[in-house]
Amino acid sequence: MSEPDLPDPATEPNASTDVESVELDVFLEAIQRVYGYDFRNYARASLRRRLWRRVHGEGRHSLTGLLEAVLHDPQAMERLRVDLSVTVTSMFRDPQFFRALRELVVPHLATYPFVRIWVAGCASGEEVYSLAILLREEGLADRVRIYATDVSEQVLEQAREGRMPLDKMKAYSSNYLEGGGREGLSRYYTVDGRWARMDPTLRDGVMFARHNLATDGTFNEFHLVLCRNVMIYFDRTLQHRVHELFDVSLVDLGILALGARESLVGSPLESHFDVIDAESRLYRKVAG
């Protein structure tokens, strides 16, 4: 997919940039006040990319043009909101993480009579199904409840459906095996045209629900929280808020899993966690 060039008639290198940065501030402030959607603490560079995609998608030429569209047309706002909330993931992304989950985390979880897991920012469910498969193979599925949340109702609907593009299953299969899979991934889905339909019994212990990491509070106590490659779209301030949310949502010795290039370094909550495995970004909440 090629990105259209950003129109920029200004010859003075910084002039247009400054105007645009004001437009961006105004834009974010306005949709927060009118619609209550708060993207002000999203990481600017990727936010800007997505906004410009909507500028072109709505046939506009500037952020101010897009703002006019979304303020007067709730449908345009909805298209923008969906575009801003969607995260992209894959099944068994980072196989070594899933191997570490099997080897380092499962034995700990197995000591609890009942286990609650929160997949925060589950998107279209790839990680939820990966986790459900892993827990079944490790004999834990019967006493685990997975709470899978996302800010977007649309992607939750996709996640509940459990439908993956068939052409991706080959890559997912090799991830699965590399991550310590004990069977073959094909055991867990049926082919339906161009789609792979995940075994519906994988959803038995899973609850999908809407939750906004930027504004909502905690809703249970968890033994494991997975939030991988979700906070990369947030700035430091919002990241720290979410770290606090996870801290209060975890039981003592509860485990937090972050994405392969995320960490708690520099977070005010850093001292609340021990590193279990630096490579796979697994943290344990310190007791007390």
């Binding site: 990481a43 600017r44 990727s46 990319r49 997505r50 992209v88 990369i232």
Partner: peptide
């Protein structure tokens, strides 16, 4: 992605 004072990552398409 490059920001004025730090780096950011993304898993977009």
């Amino acid at each position: 992605l490059v920001e004025p004072a730090w780096l950011s990552l993304s898993t977009e398409e």
